[in-house]
Simulated assay, not measured.
Amino acid sequence: MQAIPTAIEGVFILEPMVFGDSRGFFMESFNRRAFATATGVDVDFVQDNHSRSRKGVLRGLHYQIEQPQGKLVRVTQGVVFDVAVDIRKGSPTFGRWVGVELSGDNHRQFWVPAGLAHGFVVLSDTADFLYKTTDYYAPQHERCVAWNDPAIGIDWPLAAHGIAEPLLSDKDRAGLPLSQAGV
């Protein structure tokens, strides 16, 4: 496994070793020892989640004010643009974002540590999105930063993929600007 550092400390793009031939491929999707060696982070995951979404669905930017979750995310089918936003008070990169394309073909994973907001948009017809979390989902503590907050300025690749407007849940439509999000 190769861990590629990003512009935000603690956020990594992970490239697992994939062994393929005419029959298909094999990869270890997670190995605690390899993950710790590559990232310097030793984590306990407590929950696995799987979502399927159609093209144009944008989920995020989510975080929990208590029980913050670190997330190891990947896509097994389709393509998404995945984003992490640093909302850690006092961080030198507070308010900055990094993004990566994850797909069933590139096998990349994205490590988003606890204390960051996270979201993604589906660029293919559908996408299966899987992620491990370091703490349990706590809806009473979940919050949402507006996906289009101009102060953050995420360059979502919507138009390049024929997406005029993202499809949002009511919760995501009600996301607040980072300046009002209570982080």
Rank of each mutant, 00 (worst) to 15 (best):
A3T: 09
A3E: 00
A7D: 15
A7L: 01
I8E: 10
I8W: 01
V11G: 13
F12D: 09
I13A: 06
I13H: 07
E15C: 01
P16W: 11
M17L: 05
M17W: 08
V18M: 00
F19L: 13
D21S: 08
D21Y: 04
S22L: 09
S22A: 06
R23N: 06
G24W: 01
F26W: 12
F26A: 13
M27A: 07
E28Q: 14
S29H: 10
N31P: 01
A34C: 09
A34M: 08
F35W: 00
F35S: 08
F35H: 13
A36R: 15
T39Q: 06
T39V: 07
V41I: 09
V43G: 06
D44Y: 11
D44E: 15
V46S: 02
V46F: 08
D48Y: 06
N49R: 03
N49V: 06
S51L: 12
R52E: 14
R52Y: 01
S53R: 03
V57K: 01
V57R: 03
R59W: 07
R59H: 13
G60A: 08
Q64S: 07
Q64N: 10
Q69F: 00
G70H: 14
K71Y: 11
V73W: 13
G78I: 07
V79K: 11
V79R: 11
F81L: 07
V83T: 11
V85S: 14
V85Y: 02
I87H: 05
I87F: 06
K89D: 14
G90D: 10
S91E: 05
P92M: 14
T93D: 02
T93L: 12
T93A: 03
F94P: 11
F94T: 09
G95R: 03
W97E: 12
V98A: 12
V98H: 10
V98G: 06
V100L: 01
G104F: 03
G104L: 00
D105G: 09
H107N: 02
H107K: 09
H107E: 02
R108S: 02
L116K: 09
A117H: 09
H118Y: 10
V121E: 13
L123C: 00
S124Y: 13
S124G: 07
T126C: 01
A127D: 08
A127W: 11
D128T: 04
Y131E: 04
K132A: 05
K132R: 15
T133H: 02
D135P: 01
D135W: 03
Y136Q: 14
Y137R: 00
A138G: 13
A138L: 14
A138E: 14
A138D: 14
P139D: 10
P139N: 00
P139I: 09
H141C: 15
E142G: 01
V145E: 01
D149M: 10
P150F: 10
A151K: 04
A151G: 13
A151V: 15
I152G: 03
I152N: 01
I152Q: 00
I152P: 05
P157C: 02
P157V: 08
A159H: 10
H161D: 10
G162R: 10
G162C: 04
A164I: 07
E165W: 00
P166H: 13
P166L: 04
L168D: 07
D170Q: 08
D170C: 04
A174V: 08
G175L: 00
P177S: 00
L178V: 15
L178S: 05
S179N: 09
V183I: 15
